[in-house]
Design a binder for these strands. Structure first.
Ligand SMILES: NC(=O)c1ccc[n+]([C@@H]2O[C@H](COP(=O)([O-])OP(=O)(O)OC[C@H]3O[C@@H](n4cnc5c(N)ncnc54)[C@H](O)[C@@H]3O)[C@@H](O)[C@H]2O)c1
Ligand SMILES: NC(=O)c1ccc[n+]([C@@H]2O[C@H](COP(=O)([O-])OP(=O)(O)OC[C@H]3O[C@@H](n4cnc5c(N)ncnc54)[C@H](O)[C@@H]3O)[C@@H](O)[C@H]2O)c1
Lengths: 240, 240
DNA sequence: AGCGCTTTGTGCACCTGTTCACAAAGTCCT
DNA sequence: AGGACTTTGTGAACAGGTGCACAAAGCGCT
């Protein structure tokens, strides 16, 4: 019940090389730092001041060697024979990820998913401030969600510029997603988180990450199929 | 505006090796097959019957060589000089992913996110049937969402066995996620999709994939920081 | 002060995945 | 039928990431 963990193998998205601009930090490491950060936060709350790579690795579900190598990319912040100072490490990881600054986020599409996102407390907790909710449906415009008024799509450019939005979250139907994305990019947004099931085309100065539920399920299905096909070793499902 | 795309570099989750049991299909390929499938579905709808690796690759946001190598893992289903038959390829990918069977899904935690998921049409479209919604809050039990009645947590085991549920979706607060997961696993669920921001411990017979919004944003923040730090090439932010 | 214990940081070998580039295979036109 | 053209499938080089295993570094006890 506490095995090395078999988390989602990876996935997220097919993507271009990303030649690692000037950073020495590998993408794979960047993707894990937020996990370490979250675990460290939990430790700090329970009063722990120091943690070993082994303990942290177990809590984060990775191997300890990998964890140490990851941390070594930010510098030498551990003490041999002791471990890492929790508070200091939190600071260093935050700094590395750029979380010492704050980011303005706009959510486009306030339907089922957009509503959930707008009510989600996990945004603000790391310095991501939702500054606007936008929808194209006039019936939704004006609605108050979690203290923010829904604004019309026409105001997208105004809002982006006014609040210096750097991150756009797309939660519209797939059919509108590319249009919305283009407008975000034109308005100056350089990072997009996309929930619509479509591959967005963007200039390569813009980062896109996607969250696709359906893909996750299909990956699970693949492994599920394998499990049921393998072990029994006889007794087929018949219906070929 | 239609560049090679820089989708989310990868990420999803730190995870153990996954020694590739008996399948010849690489994990990275499995993660992309659903994207191809979606694109092919779109093409089929517009009447296209044949597609070249180049065209499909562009639409899927990957390189054509990668796409051909991916497809080559399922067999030789293309025709040289012509391309791939759309319908046949859809079938082959579906079969490979295990989508020719159907999967029963249960959602635990019907709050903001759970509601959105329960209303999401994208589930059923690929053979994933939501058979139950479960919550621990008595006030939510009995509520009707999208034709399904919310049932109490106590009934989890019953429901899982009754419907032969193979996939559990966890949308509870982080604090309850491990408990819920343990119960799902005990009841026989072998695949879990986790939305709670916590690393789940499971036996390695169980697959876990996680979707973590906050991590996605932090990865974007990292690259965002890099962008604003780089170009100017002087003029530091001062406050060290 | 010295010694043994703990734990970090990393060189190295391995492995997975990506990209290039081209021969093999098929189509279509003459 | 033959030849030019298109596109697949893949061998081979490369790149990125993982895990092992251990020397170096710091701690605390005697
Ligand atoms: N609901 C889920 O759980 C879920 C899960 C995964 C992915 N998704 C995806 O997320 C997206 C949103 O899903 P949803 O369930 O919230 O859909 P929804 O239909 O409930 O909401 C979509 C909202 O976007 C608005 N909209 C449409 N076009 C727009 C435009 N051009 N500009 C601004 N707003 C626009 C609509 O008015 C509506 O309010 C879809 O692409 C869906 O595939 C949803
Ligand atoms: N809302 C979002 O957009 C969003 C985004 C990313 C991640 N998440 C994560 O998803 C999870 C759910 O988020 P939410 O916004 O829907 O929260 P929420 O508080 O709105 O809903 C949680 C639901 O889970 C139920 N619940 C609590 N303990 C339970 C248990 N032991 N068994 C069954 N049900 C239980 C609660 O009664 C409630 O209905 C959280 O872990 C959150 O961090 C949410």
């Amino acid at each position: 019940m506490s095995l090395p963990q078999s988390e989602g193998p990876d996935s997220q998205g097919p993507h271009s090389p990303l030649p690692r601009r000037r950073t020495g930090i590998p993408e794979a490491t960047v993707a894990r730092l937020p996990v370490y950060l979250r675990v460290l936060g939990g430790l700090a709350e329970t009063g722990v001041t120091t943690v070993s790579s082994d303990a942290l690795a177990v809590a984060a579900g990775v191997g300890s060697a990998k964890l140490r190598k990851d941390l070594s990319h930010l510098g030498s912040y551990g003490t041999r024979g002791v471990g890492y100072d929790v508070e200091y490490l939190v600071y260093q990881i935050s700094r590395t990820l750029g979380l010492t600054q704050h980011y303005s986020v706009v959510i486009i599409g306030v339907g089922n998913l957009g509503h959930a996102l707008a009510n989600y407390a996990g945004f603000a907790s790391r310095g991501f401030q939702i500054v606007a909710l936008i929808d194209s449906d006039p019936r939704r415009v004006g609605e108050d969600i979690n203290g923010l008024e829904v604004r019309h799509l026409d105001e997208l450019e105004t809002v982006v510029k006014e609040h210096e939005v750097s991150i756009g979250v797309i939660a519209t139907p797939a059919a509108s997603a590319q249009d919305v994305c283009d407008r975000l990019v034109s308005a100056g947004v350089t990072s997009v988180l996309n929930f619509a099931p479509i591959v967005l085309a963007v200039p390569d100065t813009v980062d896109v990450r996607k969250v696709d539920l359906s893909i996750e399920l299909q990956i699970l299905a693949f492994h599920e199929q394998r499990k049921s096909a393998g072990p029994p070793a006889s007794l087929e499902v018949g219906a070929g």
